[in-house]
Amino acid sequence: MASYSSFISDTPSVETIQAISDADVLILKKTKIEELVQTHPNWMEFLKIIAEQEYLELEKRFFQLQRGNAKQRYVTLLENQSNYIQDIPLQYLASYLGITQRHLSRIRKEISF
């Protein structure tokens, strides 16, 4: 996990990442990645794919927050990442969706069967 903009600009990130469950972390310095790109051309293709995926996710998130209401955002999350609903505490889900915990609780109650 890394802030992509921080990675490409060599500046400190404005955000932090915190694991909410056990995780193994592999640290790979940017200089090592640059070395791999120089010695193994397939790494350039790999980095291109990462950049494209990052852009697609950013655009999807932007439009989701801009156009969708809170209920639509929750339903989309439920449809595409149902494991998040079970594993991530309510406060973090609410923050991700851009709503309060109370509003998220009302939405969950409204759509539960």
Rank of each mutant, 00 (worst) to 15 (best):
S95I: 04
Q81S: 13
E57I: 12
Q86W: 04
N80G: 08
Y4Q: 01
P89V: 05
N80P: 01
T31A: 14
I33S: 02
I27P: 00
E54K: 14
L90H: 06
E34W: 03
K32A: 05
E45R: 15
Q101L: 04
E15A: 13
K30C: 01
L65Y: 12
Y74T: 08
E52D: 05
Y74R: 05
G68F: 09
Q53D: 03
E79C: 02
L28E: 03
S9M: 13
S5F: 04
K32C: 00
L65S: 09
I49Q: 09
T39P: 00
A70I: 00
I85N: 10
E79N: 13
I88D: 07
A19L: 05
L90T: 08
Q81T: 03
L47F: 14
R67V: 06
I99G: 03
E59S: 02
L28P: 01
R67L: 14
L36M: 15
K48E: 03
L97Y: 00
L90A: 00
Y74A: 08
S105W: 10
T11Y: 04
A23E: 09
I88N: 03
N83M: 05
S5I: 11
A23L: 09
E52Q: 10
I49F: 13
G98F: 01
D87H: 13
S95P: 02
G98V: 01
S9Y: 06
Y92G: 02
L93G: 03
L65K: 13
Q101R: 14
N42T: 07
R106I: 09
E45F: 14
F63G: 02
S105G: 00
L58H: 10
L78I: 05
I85H: 09
N83C: 02
K32H: 10
V14S: 06
A23V: 14
Q66Y: 08
M44R: 15
K30N: 02
Y4A: 02
D24N: 13
L90R: 11
Q81A: 08
